[in-house]
Computed example of a mutant assay.
Amino acid sequence: MTGTTPNLPVQFVEAMAAAASGVSVVTTDGIAGRFGLTVSAVTSVSAEPPLLLCCINRKNPISAAITENGGFAANLLAETQVPLAKIFAGRPEHPHQAYDFNHAQWYAGVAQNPMLEFAAATFECRLDSWHDGGTHRIFIGNVVAASISGLPVLAYHHRKFGRFVPF
């Protein structure tokens, strides 16, 4: 396949659905307010220094909040946290409210971002830089704290939640 087609954006989204990923709730707190959003675009950039990347649609209010607050946390969800993933994706199941922090236990990290108790892993970042790419803002954070719980990670593949099963 070479060149572009009129349906390329649709084809791209469909092809990306085939990419399995972890599920994170990215959070921020500060002068711009407290926000959280379920995302699948979180990845490491560097181990020395520890840098983390996350991508968020610029139209989502958390994008401006991360920029103004100067930091964020990526809370990698455990496989039992599907309801939380749906809440912060804006699609909660009854009786929960969208983007409701009261559904889970949180604590303030070293940079005061909301950190999820019982997450599979957590990463707290001070904002290093950001770049606009298409519809999204690409945030790069300096990791100031990281932890792992040992709980199994929640996976996302073909628009479905699941679990990682080793060979």
Rank of each mutant, 00 (worst) to 15 (best):
T67F: 08
H158K: 12
V39D: 00
S44T: 09
K160F: 02
V165N: 01
N75Y: 14
F72Q: 07
A47Y: 06
P6M: 12
A74M: 13
R34L: 10
L77N: 03
A145H: 14
L37F: 06
S44H: 09
I138L: 06
W130P: 04
T135C: 02
I138W: 02
M115F: 05
I31C: 15
E79K: 08
L76G: 09
Q105G: 05
A120P: 03
F72C: 04
A108V: 10
N60Y: 06
L77E: 07
N69C: 13
F139W: 01
S44D: 00
I66N: 06
F101E: 08
G3R: 13
V165Y: 06
Y156R: 02
V143C: 09
W106R: 14
V144G: 07
V82K: 10
I62K: 07
V23M: 04
L52Y: 11
R137P: 04
H136N: 05
V165G: 01
E79L: 05
S149Q: 10
P166S: 07
N69M: 11
L116M: 14
G109Y: 08
L51H: 01
V110L: 10
H136Q: 01
L84D: 11
P166I: 02
A145D: 14
L52N: 11
N7L: 13
N69T: 13
Y107Q: 14
T5I: 12
P95N: 06
A111L: 04
M115Y: 00
V110D: 07
A85N: 06
I62E: 01
V153N: 02
H96C: 12
V39P: 00
S147T: 14
F139R: 05
L76C: 13
P92S: 07
A74K: 11
I66H: 01
L116C: 14
F164S: 04
S21A: 15
I87Q: 04
N102M: 12
P49M: 02
G33R: 08
F35C: 00
H131P: 03
Y99C: 03
A120S: 15
P50F: 02
